[in-house]
Design a protein around this nucleic acid. Structure first.
Length: 540
DNA sequence: TACCCCAGCGCG
DNA sequence: AAAGCGCGCTGGGGTA
């Protein structure tokens, strides 16, 4: 059963897509509460779902037409469909841009929810999408991706609704300890000011370390052979100014990115509520906007504290991308190296000598390293695991030729900008540039299939977990165990303490289920570390 | 004034 | 200024 929502109207369809009812909607929340569980079909989850959650209504399933359209438009699995052949239209509009910072005391309803400029007919679009899936090379595979993507859209809105518990007093305490008391507007906090004075004292002249230009000039004036002020370069130099300078940079970064200003802007009523953007990265990973949710530094994770009587279950999928790579390639040797710690397994296979080598070799294989330790170790991996390495090499060569690559469930890479494909060979400089860009695109497509498939695993993981969490208790979503954070291969569930162990078990179960959804009976395992902690800083 | 780009660094 | 992928955010510095 499906119900397609458009402004003021709800049209119901049976499983075959036949219209069974068409009715006006005056009270959306009441209608949805009454009809659950059906699969709600709507243009954009962020347009419909925040108001439902605010009214205390959670939905089981949906189809997010905009997100599904983006997948079907590009997927090689639906390349022959009418949807893919049509000219770009309203359904191809990119995701709305991030919400701007809001003052404290945000309204209950999400006033910035995107409103489409043109009201497109969701029924017509949904029918086109059903047609594309049914006619695809592999309807089950692409269908799973659309379901997972739509579940992700629900989770993203639910996580913003719940917010990540963050204690402002603890955060301010951390800042004060590291930086000194909150400074007056426009002034440096005490620790930064005294570090700056040390830098000036050592070099013997005044300069502003916040300005990269001034800092570079100052270092060169002091006789240091540097071409930039980035810490990887500076860290190599032996000079008394380096240690306090690196300290200054670290603290300055904390201050600007996650200091008092950040706290005032993004943490309201003890909750950090960024906007999560499913499908916001070409590979299918989520993006986030507002407060840098996906960059929450380890320094301040101590301020992420569960409510009284509640706790966090922090879970991390171990070596997710290497495992996905092994499973996708059907490389039995590499899959079996992952029966425990995957890097130890690779060492045991004899390919490399140490765990650290195994790790950089795998990273090199996934990112396309050609030099350094990483590049040097990849060929040894290729001898031990030829199928796995051949898969990423093939993806890289395809990208270099300007071809499209596709993830496990059917998300395809964008076409290259392609000027490098046609670069004439007359001009040597242009040819060399074209070759460089072709290689670069090859590294992108190489990584795309792994990162994108890992993102699909993570979506399936979270979708399964979401279902399990809902059944553990009664009440509104924030009264039950619920997801509050997601970071590519890591989740945080906020739960009543008594349910923590059940939550942890569900997280592991959902990981197993996700592995089977993507890879069937292949004996690939997706071990997940779980930690029951009061504060995020205590995990790992 | 408003905007855009860059360097740098945080996360996976 | 990275060798080796994907992001977002900030302040500085420039241009219109």
């Amino acid at each position: 059963m499906y119900v397609v929502l458009s402004p003021g109207r709800a049209r119901s369809f049976d499983a075959d897509g036949a219209l069974t009812a068409d009715e006006p909607v005056s009270d959306l929340a009441a209608l949805v509460r009454d009809r659950e569980p059906v699969r709600w079909v709507w243009d954009d989850t962020r347009r419909w779902y925040p108001q439902l959650l605010a009214a205390g209504v959670r939905v089981e399933r949906c189809v997010d037409l905009r997100l599904c359209h983006a997948i079907l438009r590009n997927s090689t699995l639906t390349a022959g469909s009418r949807l893919a052949a049509a000219a770009a239209g309203v359904w191809d509009a990119p995701a709305e841009l991030p919400a701007p910072p809001r003052p404290r005391g945000e309204a209950l309803f999400d006033l910035d929810a995107p409103e489409p400029a043109v009201e497109a007919d969701p029924v017509a679009e949904w029918m086109l999408q059903r047609e594309a899936v049914a006619a695809s090379n592999d309807p089950a595979r692409i269908g799973l991706l659309l379901a997972a993507e739509s579940a992700g859209a629900l989770i993203a809105v639910e996580m913003k609704h719940a917010g990540l518990p963050l204690d402002p007093a603890t955060h301010e305490g951390l800042l004060e300890q590291l930086l000194g008391p909150r400074p007056r507007l426009g002034e440096r906090p005490a620790k930064l000011e005294s570090l700056k004075q040390r830098l000036v004292g050592i070099l013997g002249f005044e300069f502003n370390p916040d300005s990269a230009v001034e800092l570079l000039k100052a270092l060169r004036k002091a006789g240091l052979q540097v071409t930039s002020t980035s810490k990887w370069e500076i860290a190599e130099i032996d000079h008394p100014v380096i240690e306090p300078l690196l300290e200054y940079k670290k603290l300055s970064r904390l201050m600007t990115a996650n200091g008092w200003n950040w706290l005032d802007t993004w943490v309201v009523d003890g909750r950090f509520r960024p906007e999560y953007v499913p499908g916001g990265v070409v590979t299918g990973r989520w993006a986030a906007a507002g407060g840098g949710a996906l960059q929450l530094p380890k320094q301040i994770r101590g301020a992420v504290i569960a409510d009284p009587g509640w706790t966090f279950v922090v879970a991390d999928a171990a070596q997710l991308e290497p495992r996905v790579l092994a499973a996708m390639a059907g490389d039995r040797a590499m899959v079996s190296a992952g029966s425990g710690d995957m890097y130890e397994g690779i060492v045991a296979s004899g390919a490399v000598a140490t765990r650290a080598e195994a790790k950089v070799a795998m990273l090199g294989a996934m990112y396309g390293a050609t030099t350094g330790d990483s590049g040097r170790l990849v060929p040894r991996l290729a001898r031990a695991f030829p199928r796995a390495i051949a898969m990423v090499e093939d993806a890289a060569r395809a990208g270099e030729r300007g071809e499209i690559v596709t993830t496990r469930l059917g998300r395809s890479s964008p076409p290259p900008a392609a000027d490098w494909r046609r670069e004439s060979s007359i001009d040597a400089a242009a040819e060399s540039r074209a070759r460089r860009e072709s290689r670069s695109w090859g590294r992108f497509t190489r990584n795309f299939i792994v990162q994108g498939s890992a993102a699909e695993w993570a979506l399936c993981w979270m979708a399964g977990l979401r279902g399990a969490l809902w059944t553990m208790q009664d009440g509104a979503i924030t009264e039950r165990p619920h997801l509050v954070f997601f970071l590519h291969d890591e989740v945080i569930v906020h739960t009543p303490i008594a349910l923590a162990e059940r939550v942890a078990a569900s997280i592991r179960q959902a990981a197993d289920d996700a592995g089977r959804l993507l890879f069937g009976d292949l004996p690939v395992t997706f071990p997940v570390t779980t930690a029951v902690v009061r504060s995020y800083a205590e995990a790992k």
